[in-house]
């Protein structure tokens, strides 16, 4: 039982990080129908910025805030510099622009920060907490807590605020939204900025556990994409569910069966889900968007 709980805690922590990346995919997809392959690199930039701002003597909390803001700015910049100028390009061209952007961001990170791995201390210490035979580091609680907080905030934003509703309207039908007087250009900048912000938040909260490196975004981007499609593109609930399923599958496979094929099992699972639910777990059925 203690073992099961241990795997559960591990899986949920990893799953939350995947979920946060998936939420970023979701935000951008909803606004622009683009799959942003640079989402993982926002996470990297968040983590790396936090580490390096801290190392220059800035207090931790300020460094975290700055890192998150850098992520947000980068997201908005990606839209302004890469997506908007491409105007009427199809989804696949836009995806390749994001692939190019990902390589570019990674290249810049390589030049500025080098190829090393970096860590930073947990927000509230690194002394593990033991409970019911389960061990977890305090940072895991931060990861889980922040994820819950962000999901709640996003839900409130989209259901309770005018701006949030405007974003949703834009995602359903950009032309109609424009006619209704919504500044869709601003909405797009906002969505990309939010995605960058979210990525950077994921980066700073996970760095104390997973470390960071200029190439960490490759794997995170892939897993985040998987999680968001698994849950159903564009669905926030789906993104979180997808992330958690992915994390739990990995932990349970590693814990109970073998690690050799844990990643492969995750992909088999995805294929099966898609075969029976062609729009993911929570995706809208029958709507062809691409």
């Amino acid at each position: 039982m203690a073992e099961f709980l241990q795997f559960l805690v591990t899986g949920i922590t990893i799953g939350c990080t995947f979920a946060l990346v998936a939420l970023g995919f979701c935000l951008v997809y909803n606004a622009s129908h683009v799959i942003n392959f640079a989402q993982g690199d926002f996470v990297m930039v968040g983590g790396m910025s936090a580490v390096f701002i801290m190392s220059s003597g800035v207090p931790m909390w300020l460094a975290l805030v700055l890192a998150v803001l850098i992520g947000g700015a980068l997201g908005a910049l990606l839209y302004k510099g890469g997506i908007q100028p491409a105007k009427n390009a199809d989804a696949i061209q836009l995806i390749i622009i994001t692939v190019g952007a990902a390589l570019f961001i990674r290249g810049v990170a390589h030049v500025i920060w080098g190829t090393g791995y970096f860590s930073m201390p947990g927000f509230t210490g690194d002394t593990p907490i033991r409970f019911l035979g389960v061990v977890m580091v305090p940072q895991s609680l931060w990861v889980i807590g922040v994820t819950v907080g962000i999901v709640t905030a996003l839900a409130l934003f989209f259901t309770r605020t005018r701006l949030g509703k405007a974003v949703l309207a834009t995602s359903y039908n950009r032309d109609a939204a424009k006619l209704m007087g919504i500044d869709t250009g601003m909405i797009l900048v906002l969505s990309f900025g939010l995605a960058g912000l979210l990525g950077a938040v994921a980066g700073v909260i996970m760095t104390p556990i997973t470390f960071t490196n200029y190439e960490i975004g490759v794997m995170l981007g892939l897993k985040g994409f998987v999680a968001s499609v698994l849950g159903g593109l564009g669905s926030f609930v789906g993104a979180v569910a997808g992330g958690l399923i992915l994390g739990l599958t990995e932990a349970m496979m590693a814990g109970y069966i073998s690690s050799d094929y844990k990643d492969a099992v995750a992909f088999v699972l995805i294929l099966l889900i898609l075969f029976f639910m062609p729009s993911g777990l929570f995706g809208q059925r029958g709507v062809e968007r691409v």
Partner: peptide, 17 residues
């Protein structure tokens, strides 16, 4: 004899085993 992928960020499960 346990393994993990090079990109994994948590090996608690393997060590627990």
């Amino acid at each position: 004899d346990e393994t993990y992928s090079p990109d994994d960020s948590d090996m608690t499960a393997q060590l627990t085993r």
